[in-house]
Structures are given as structure tokens and as C-alpha cells.
Nucleic acid binder design. Sequence first.
DNA 1: TACCTTTAGTAACAGATGTTACAAAGCATA
DNA 2: TATGCTTTGTAACATCTGTTACTAAAGGTA
Lengths: 211, 211
Amino acid sequence: MFKEALEQHYGFLFEPTLMEEILRFGSLKKVAAGQQLIEIGELITHMPLLLSGAIKIMREDDHGDELLLYFIEKGDTCAMSFSCCMGGTKSDIRAVAETDAEIIMVPVAQMESWMGKYKTWQRFVLDSYQARMKELLHTVDTLAFLRMDDRLLKHLQDKAKVIGDDHIHATHQEIAYDLHTSRVVISRLLKKLENEGKISMHRNDITVIDL
Amino acid sequence: MFKEALEQHYGFLFEPTLMEEILRFGSLKKVAAGQQLIEIGELITHMPLLLSGAIKIMREDDHGDELLLYFIEKGDTCAMSFSCCMGGTKSDIRAVAETDAEIIMVPVAQMESWMGKYKTWQRFVLDSYQARMKELLHTVDTLAFLRMDDRLLKHLQDKAKVIGDDHIHATHQEIAYDLHTSRVVISRLLKKLENEGKISMHRNDITVIDL
DNA sequence: TACCTTTAGTAACAGATGTTACAAAGCATA
DNA sequence: TATGCTTTGTAACATCTGTTACTAAAGGTA
């Protein structure tokens, strides 16, 4: 039963009849950190409502090169799904659980009918689109206007924030994948950040001091 | 009177009653190439429906550095406005007419009421959000995965496409602003593209051969 | 034509990032 | 402890991009 969690996170948003429908058609999904939720090119059949945890959204090019786009946070404005869950389209992104997470999966069919029936749902979907758009704009800013050292620090700060812990458990290689660069570059810049007193490092562990 | 142009571009999309409302509340705006339509931070009061021409959407950082995000094309899937025209928010982007353009300006107030009344309008807004999202993803891909020479060629191809002419009238400096780099870099890379036979150049004029 | 402004070409250099190769340190386990 | 795998540190170098400075060409105008 996930009634309580749903109430807690979305009760103030949706009217009672809509909450009932979500309870009836939605299913609770628990995922462990690292688990993949959706792959690029996959058909999107459900829209996720995040109850707890955090999801990272990745993009990939033809060569298999990856890039982290943004995190969807637990307790976010009210985390919408992904960029593109309307109308039987395929996913443009990969979604991976950054932490353990609880998600309500709503079938897309219901979603479309709710758009007509419930004003609050309509508002929710539009707001979510808007929020995702803003995230993407930030991603663009980061790529266009920042150098790698600032991107790295920002990434560590973001990551510390979404996992709610200033200790980040990750290898340099994993960070390099997220930022689409090489391990050596990350090691070099991490050392620089450490010398500047912004982080401290141990094997598999980075502590963000400058939050 | 812009009834005919409206019919031609949006008639197949919207039901007759909605078309009437658009005619009643919307106003036609003609803008010349280069004219600014909206500035970052400005309150958005109207949603634009593009009838002809092309609009370029720019982003800017704190230091005044610019970046072209994407073009909104004449005859596009049915060009939606900007990223963020819902609910009295301020603009995250700058919009500048890339060519002469004709636009119907619809007050935001109407838009919100139409969301409830007209299924076709609802669909239109959602599809537009989705299309803008895809454009932004392409922008991210370009920034993250391509080097400047490929970005430049892509930019020239895109630009040739939206103006409907393989002759591009622009200085190297103007191109540098769009791609957020320096004039010297653009000159260097243009010369390289010319040597590779992909473009030809004259003062204030670049012809894209490899379309 | 002479002059001026705008635009473009080029060299020389600096800095950021990416690559390769190898060594060293940390950790797990036989 | 000895061994092997993973992770990190570092050097040396290549390449890409950005910067400065100067020259040259194109076009407009007196």
C-alpha cells in the first residue's frame, strides 16, 4: 500500500477523485540505486511519479558517448517524469536510479484521459514540462559557458544535494562518464579542487566541502 | 486581415470555433529581420503563432555571453512560442527575427482558458513543448559531442535551411556570437571548410555547398 | 582618386582539454 | 603475507580553442 506516501507527496496537488484514480491505476515500483528505469529508444508506456529517491537522466550520442543531463529529485517541485512521455513516443533519454527510489507508475493511457478531466493534472503536466525545460537550459548554460573545473565542482555539489550527503561514493571514471570527459582529466581537476580546499578525497569517496 | 494566412497554416489543426477565437483575440504582428521580439527577464504577455519567416532563440549568461539555442521555423510543425509562456513567468530567452516574419500574438489569458475548452489547443501546446524539448536536446548534443568545426558547419546548414537560401549574409563576427566563440576562430574554421569544398566565401556572404 | 571604415586573413602564442603510458597505492582474497 | 585487481597519480605530449596583434582586402564616400 502506497496510499500514505502518495498523500504526503501529491495530496496537496491533486483533487481527491484524481488521487483515487492514481491509486487504482498506478503501481508502486521500488528500484535500487544503479538500476536502469528506461533506455533510449524504448517505448514509453508509463509515466513515473517520484515518491522518494533521485533519478539521473542521461543522453547518449551515436558513438555511445554519454552525458548527464540532470537529476530528478525526491521532493522536487513535484517531479514529473521525463521529457517525452506523451503519445506513444520513444524515449530520447536514459533514466537510471541515482539512489534507491520509490516510484508510482501511471499508464500513459490514463494520463491522456486525465488531461481532459482534471485541471490539477493538466497544470501538473504543464508545470513539469516547464521545470524540465529549465533544467535543460541550465544544462546548456553549463556546457556552453563553463569550463571543466567549474562543471566538475557543480556536478559534485548537485550530486551531494540529491543524495543528501556530502560524501560522494564514486570513482573518477564514473564521474568522467557523467561529464563526458576522460578519467585523467577528472583526476587532475579533482586534485586541483582538493588543493583549493573545496573537496577532500579518499579512494571511492569525495567529500564536498564547498557546498 | 490575416484570416487567410491563419487558415492556411493552422486551419487543419484547430476547430472552427477556436479559429474564430484566435481571429478575435489575436493580433497580427509584422517584424523585420533583426528585430527583437522578446528579451531575457521580460514578462511574457502573449504567445506567438508563427505564420511566416523564422525566429532565432538565444540564451545569455551573467557576463553577457550569448549562445544560439535553435531556430523556430516558418511552416514548422506549427511553431509554438518560447519555452515558457505559461502563467505570468519571465522569459528565459531572447527571441530575434532571423528573417522578416508574420506572427499572431495571442494574449496569455486567452491561452489558459483555451487549454480547458479546446482539445486541439491542448494537443497543440503539448506537442509544441515536446518539439521545443527535442530542439533543446539537439542543442545539448551539439555542445557536448561536437567540436567547433562541426558545430559551425551544422550552424550554416541550419541557417541556410531556415532562410531558404544557400547564400548566407553574415559576418564572421555575427556567426561567432551565435556559437559563443571568437571571430578569429570562425575565420580559421571557415577557411578550413572552404578548403574542404564544403562552402565558398565572399565578403559578407557564405555559400553552403554541402547542404 | 584618396581616405576611412568594416571585414577578413594570418601568425604566434597561451591555456584548456584529451590521450597514452606507466607507476603507485588501496583493497580483497587466496 | 603474497598475489592480483581496481583505483588513483603523474608525466609527456597532441590537439583544440581562445587571444593578441598586425596586415590586407573590400567597400563606401568625400
